[in-house]
Amino acid sequence: MPALQAKTQGARIIPGLHGLRICFFVSDVYYFKERKKPTLVMFLAAFTSRSPREVSPDATLLSRLLQKDVSAFEQLYDRHSRLVYGLVLRILQHASTSEEVVQDVFLQLWRNAAQYDESRGPFVPWLCTMARNRALDHLRLKSERQRRREDLPEELPSIAVAPEYEKALDDQRRAERVRALVAALNPQQKRAIELAYFEGLSHSEIAATLKEPLGTVKSWIRNGLLRLKEGLQATT
């Protein structure tokens, strides 16, 4: 089943064409086997058999975004604004500044949709990375000169498509799973990871904040992340 999913995943960008191709293939096979003309039923069967998870809704919306489709943008905003705003608010702890950052993030998505490329990783992690980077920039950089630099579209690093855990769960179920796994971590591991992720602190800054040895902080962070990884892999 994962192999089939991986195969159909490749055609996500052009779901219409893909569906049509399957439809013609099925009707052709039917025609030659039964020596009958393909019926409308075959066409409908080919379309309805396509399960909703085969084509990522985000990929469809993103391809429409390239055509400057306003309703596609609205749907993407409705799907992800709560996650993005929650993340930015958790980092900045200030509602109106957070809304400013979220506005920047979504406007960049609208204006530079072509910049998002599936080969650079799945969409939600990409969007969250962009939001976190911008929020941390706000947190760290106070000078106007450095703020202006942020207006330029940024080049984000590649994020791996992790097939097993990416597709095993939908967004909602994965969010619940991640929260449960992090909540189950040793409180010190959890605290160290949160300081790094939401406050953008480095190993030595965390060690100073927690008044703990550097080596201890390093292993808390690494072991905590590895446990989260194992937990997500176990869900496949």
Binding site: P122, I159, A160, A175
Partner: peptide
Amino acid sequence: VEEARWLVCQLAYTAPEATPS
């Protein structure tokens, strides 16, 4: 590193979701 980035991105879910205005 790419796999680790994906893992780190999952931490976004630990922030409580909030509805913007």
